[in-house]
Structure formats: C-alpha cells, structure tokens
C-alpha cells in the first residue's frame, strides 16, 4: 500500500522542491541568529539525542547508564515563488556531531560556514568536513564588535582556503546580510556544479 501524495493528487498543487542549506560553525558563532534573520518562519529548534559514542541512540536498553546528550539544530525556511523551499539547518560544528551532518549534507545544495571573527580557528572542523565531503561551501565571517577587522585575504590565508572558496564579511543579525550570504553560496554552488568539464579539478587526489 502506498500513501504517496501523487496518487491522491487530483487537483492538488505540486509540492515545492525542497533544497537543504547547512549553516555550520563554532560555538556562539551566530548560527541561530543567522537562521532567524533570514527565515520566513520563527526559527525553530529541533533536537537529536546522542550517546557519548557520538552516534544516534540505537538501543534503548541501558539508556540510563549511557552518557547521553542532545544536540540542537536550528531550523528555518524560505519559500521561493512556491516552487522551491530552502530549508536552513544550523548545526554545531564539533566533530562529534558529524554523523548528523552526514544526513544533513546528503543532497544539500551547500553549506555556510560561519566564523566568529574573534575566534576564526573554531570553524576549522567545519571547513575540513565540507572540503573532504565535497559539499560546496562559503565562509561568512561574523564581525562582532570588538573583533579586529580582517581583510578577506587574511581570512582565506588563516583558514587555508582554496582560492575559489568565497569569503564574505557579515552581520548575522541583518536580514540583508543573510540574503547576501545565501546568494553568494548559491552562486558558488552553481559555478561549481555547472562548470564546463575543462574547469573541473584535475586528477583525484591519491
């Protein structure tokens, strides 16, 4: 038996195409703020339960003995002309949460790595993850007051980013700044994924 919508679908409009975008970054980098600034809905928090093994709980017996914790995800959405819905997921960037990113990154259009200008190094793990996974990503440097002003090239150097990775400065509280970040990411993903073959990277790393 199938309850697929298509089978009941008489007269029902086609559901919009869902596109995932991840927002990663270190502790306090502004992920929740950014999701809230651009989402058309109240930003929501969802939680996933983890064991200390860093995997989702898969066996309830003895849960009380395990060191369990929850990991919070921010969630927002942007509907585009009823044809597309961008789903934004803000997730913490620590390595022990990577198993969760694996699900999130699957089929994602790309990722925004939010860097706190006062603690650039906190976003290393996120950059590392998306590089290795081959997910298109950009780096957005959240310029908190009191942070020293960076030149974009300095950031690139500090994070050891390939030249084609876009770096932007932002204020995660500002909707327009958030929009600019999203546009930069989509443009980057487009360039990456629709590039003519001769512009592709050379031989795969061995």
């Amino acid at each position: 038996m199938d309850y697929g919508l298509s089978e009941r679908g008489a007269g029902r409009p086609k559901p919009p195409i869902a596109i995932k975008i991840l927002i990663a970054g270190g502790f306090g980098a502004g992920k929740t703020t950014l999701v809230g600034a651009v989402s058309e809905t109240q930003p929501l928090r969802t939680e996933e339960i983890l064991t200390d093994q860093g995997v989702a709980v898969d066996d309830v017996s003895g849960v009380e003995g395990k060191n369990t914790t929850t990991v919070a995800m921010d969630f927002g959405r942007i509907t585009i002309k009823n044809r597309f819905v961008l789903y934004l997921f803000g997730t913490p960037g620590q390595e022990r949460f990577w198993f969760m990113w694996d699900e999130l990154a699957l089929g994602a259009l790309g990722a925004i790595v939010l860097a706190d200008a006062r603690r650039l190094a906190d976003c290393f793990p996120s950059v590392d993850y998306f590089e290795r996974r081959g997910t298109p990503f950009i780096v957005a440097v959240n310029c908190f007051e009191g942070a020293r002003q960076y030149e974009l090239d300095e950031v690139r150097l500090a994070l050891n980013l390939a030249p084609e990775i876009p770096v932007v400065l932002c204020d995660a509280r500002e909707r327009d700044s958030g929009k600019k970040i999203l546009i930069t990411l989509v443009e980057h993903a487009k360039a990456r994924n629709t590039a003519p073959p001769e512009k592709m990277a050379g031989t795969p790393a061995g």
Partner: peptide, 27 residues
C-alpha cells in the same frame, strides 16, 4: 501521507540555480 524529497534535485541544473537566485534577490 509522506512526500519524500525529490530523490535528486538536479544539482547540475543551471535553471534551478537561476530560479533560486532570482527568488533570493527579490525577497
């Protein structure tokens, strides 16, 4: 009823990116 996400949003479809960019710019 469940509508699974499109198994493959065609990530090499230039038109998809253009439409999304268009939408974002006019938000």
């Amino acid at each position: 009823a469940v509508e699974e996400p499109q198994p493959e949003v065609n990530m090499s479809d230039e038109a998809m990116y253009e439409a999304v960019l268009d939408g974002l710019r006019t938000l």
